[in-house]
Amino acid sequence: MMTDKPTITYPCTWTFRIIGKNPSAIKHAVSTLIPNMDSYSLKPGNTSKKGNYVSWHLTLVVLSEDQKNTYKKDLLKQPGIHFIL
Rank of each mutant, 00 (worst) to 15 (best):
F16Y: 15
K68E: 01
H28I: 02
G51E: 12
S41K: 15
T32K: 14
I19L: 04
V54W: 06
L75N: 08
K27V: 03
K68R: 15
I84F: 06
T7N: 05
C12F: 04
L63A: 12
P35H: 03
T7W: 04
K5M: 14
P79C: 11
S41P: 12
N22R: 06
A25T: 10
W56T: 02
I81T: 04
I34K: 05
I26R: 00
I26C: 06
S39L: 13
L76H: 02
G51F: 02
L33P: 08
T13V: 14
D4H: 05
S64A: 06
N22A: 07
I84E: 01
I81Q: 06
M2F: 13
S31D: 06
M1C: 12
V62T: 07
G20F: 07
W14T: 00
L60W: 09
E65G: 14
T3R: 12
L58C: 01
P6Q: 06
D38E: 13
L76Q: 07
L60Y: 02
A29P: 07
L75K: 06
S55Y: 00
D74S: 08
N52D: 14
S64E: 00
T47E: 09
Y53V: 03
V61K: 09
K43Q: 08
D66P: 05
N52Y: 13
P35C: 04
K72A: 03
H57D: 11
S55K: 00
D66A: 13
V62Q: 09
L42E: 02
I34L: 08
L42S: 00
Y53L: 10
T7V: 15
A25S: 15
K73E: 09
H28A: 08
V30N: 02
L63Q: 09
A29N: 11
L58K: 03
T15A: 05
Y10W: 13
D74G: 06
L76P: 07
D38W: 04
G80Y: 04
Y10N: 11
D66R: 14
E65M: 10
I8K: 03
N22E: 14
Q78H: 10
K50G: 14
K50Q: 09
T9L: 14
Q78M: 14
I34T: 04
K77F: 00
P23I: 02
V62W: 04
T15C: 04
I26F: 00
K72N: 07
P23Y: 05
P11K: 02
H82C: 00
L63H: 10
K43L: 05
I18N: 03
K72H: 09
L60R: 02
P11D: 07
K77D: 00
E65V: 12
G80E: 07
Y10L: 09
P79W: 04
P35I: 08
W14I: 01
